[in-house]
Design a protein around this nucleic acid. Sequence first.
DNA 1: ACCCAGGGTCGTC
DNA 2: GACGACCCTGGG
Length: 292
Amino acid sequence: MKQNMEQTYIIKDCKSFEPKDIFECGQCFRWDIQGDGSYTGIFGENILNVKKDKNEIIISGICKDDIKKVCDDYFDINRDYEAIKRKLSNVDEYLAESIKYGSGIRILNQDLWEMIISFITSANNNIPRIKGILNRLSQKYGKKIVFRGKDYYTFPTIEALSKASIKDLREIGLGFRDKYIYQTTQMIYNGEISLEKIKKQSSTNEMRKILLKMQGIGPKVADCILLFSTLKRLDVFPVDVWVRRVMNELYIKNPDENKVTRKEIENIAKEKFGDLEGIAQQYLFYWKRDKE
DNA sequence: ACCCAGGGTCGTC
DNA sequence: GACGACCCTGGG
């Protein structure tokens, strides 16, 4: 197959697919809005532009494999978000409103290694800065691909990133997370932790236990990795400042938000949202963060 | 200039 | 289990 031959994939009458909701709900960091409102992003060695025109989703760009196969997987096309939204909307009016706001969200199936590095970077950080760091990391340790006259860089491989020193990472702007990225990369590179083994675990909890062994991964980051990577565990409920805020306001009503424990929030989430709590979290997060 | 907060985690007590 | 420290950047 020719390297830079572009492919196109049109999804007709696709419900629950809104590029803005998908790419700006906080699950991914390497998709950027274009002048025409479409989004261009890179994952693996694929560089795609996603555009919505009426009821059609037009995906075009460079794809390593068959574009339909790659995108059906990446965009979680075979999951019935309409059914999920119907079910979750019945929980209560708050969740129903958040779903109305983020009704085009789909949870992407992203590379596990990339999610590990991305969400370690996200700790006590803000989204614009996270995106900058991951772009610089890719520029330095990834592979350049030219797409429509512009340079793009693949996310660094484990091996490529294993060559970076703590000092190199600090210079990229990782701040105090430099040592976490370094140590975790080394652990994975030298085989002390096997990503394949994580994928083979039968329960969410077993997967989480392994993730928590890595430097820079605590409960919140572990849950994001479980939810947004190809591990795709929907039975997690990442608790960050926004989710703590919205869950306290809606259900717990503790005058001091910081006194609310993670366990308390997780229990309510499990009770109200059941096995779809991960997706519910994303509607609530996106809704609350954009409201402020 | 100064302070605050951001998709938290770690080390210490 | 509860604290404080922590790189850096943009916004008040």
